[in-house]
């Protein structure tokens, strides 16, 4: 059956053949080991060192990982660039915060409502703007974020431009402010673990395969039978829910919410940078990207040499990555060492 040049080339293929054998022996969840190990290590780190300041910086890293991993479902798996993903964080945060601050709901009920609001927005937007391809979709997401921020700025029930604050008494229900801070950290850790597992399950499922097909060639995917409009919409919804929930948690911990920090466009772009840095389309990439980006930022902000030009240095680094390592660190490793593919999902 096979043509002569085929068998000839097959002999040189032992490297990929070997990795296939390794893969079969290693079990099916091997790709999840590294991501989960990193999240767990980050979670217990502050307990080991016992310093609150460590916990605060790890909170930021964890937040980055969770948001970047969420965005990755849309950006990395489906190939749609959302420049305004922060809108889900902001809207979820606002809805949850309103329920806690004005309606007196508990954090436990407000969080799912924030997720629901974000998911619902993504569903409606999915129907409307996911038809747009490439740069047009990216622009539309910017427009949506700006429109939402401007609207909330005028929306009296949410406090307009001044936003809302939580009464300090609220934290008493959670054992005082200190306990609430620590509680927020562990909730975030659990949510981060959850999104990483979801990300892995999507990556290795039939649904995920459909998303990857859309990323590679949407028209060809439709011809193959991938129902692209609904697959894209669900990917969008999935990538929006966790940021919505985390928004509630973040502003609960913060104690106040305002339009500008809730819908900061640069925050969206930071998420993209983290996904790119680590490697889009992989489970591990956004984790590495989140840790790497925040560590780098921390270093630049505190180093006397780069303190004033940290933004410019970060920009130059991003440019180098985009131009020379577009697959990100994990993607680069996967391409360089195919045998590692199973471990570096």
């Amino acid at each position: 059956m096979s043509s002569p040049n085929d068998t000839q080339l097959a002999a040189t293929d032992t490297k990929t053949g070997l990795s296939a054998v390794l893969a079969q022996n290693a079990g099916s969840f091997v790709g999840l080991i590294l991501p989960v190990a990193i999240i767990l290590a980050l979670t217990i780190w502050p307990t080991i060192t016992g310093k609150d300041i460590t916990r605060e910086s790890i909170f930021t890293i964890m937040l980055s990982i969770a948001l970047a991993s969420s965005l990755n479902i849309l950006l990395g798996y489906t190939g749609y660039v959302s420049f305004g993903h922060v809108v889900f964080f902001g809207l979820g945060g606002y809805v949850g915060f309103y329920l806690m601050a004005v309606q007196g709901w508990s954090l436990w009920l407000a969080m799912p409502m924030g997720g629901l609001a974000a998911g619902l927005l993504a569903f409606l937007l999915g129907k409307a703007i996911l038809r747009l391809r490439g740069g047009y979709f990216a622009l539309a997401t910017i427009g949506v974020n700006e429109a939402m921020r401007a609207f909330i700025n005028n929306f009296k029930p949410f406090g307009g431009p001044v936003g809302m604050t939580l009464n300090f008494q609220v934290y008493k229900d959670y054992g005082g402010a200190a306990r609430a801070l620590s509680l927020a950290f562990y909730i975030l850790a659990a949510l981060t673990l959850l999104i990483v597992i979801i990300s892995y399950l999507v990556r290795t499922s039939k649904f995920g395969l459909g998303l990857l097909a859309i990323r590679e060639d949407e028209d060809a995917a439709e011809v193959m039978g991938v129902v692209a409009p609904s697959a894209k919409t669900w990917a969008y919804v999935l990538s929006a829910i966790l940021p919505g929930i985390i928004g509630v948690l973040f502003f609960f911990k913060n104690g106040s919410i305002e339009p500008v920090p809730a819908f900061r466009l640069n925050f969206s772009i930071e998420m993209i940078v983290m996904v790119m840095l680590g490697g889009q389309g992989t489970v591990l990439g956004p984790i590495i990207g989140g840790v790497g980006y925040q560590s780098l930022r921390g270093f630049l902000l505190t180093s006397p040499l780069f303190k004033n030009i940290q933004l410019a240095v970060a920009g130059a680094l991003l440019l180098v990555i985009v131009l020379f390592v577009p697959a990100g660190l994990v993607g680069w490793l996967r391409n360089r060492f195919p045998a590692l593919r199973r471990v570096l999902q």
Partner: peptide
């Protein structure tokens, strides 16, 4: 990234 460099 060019924007970041210029702004920075």
């Amino acid at each position: 990234s060019v924007a970041m460099i210029i702004t920075g």
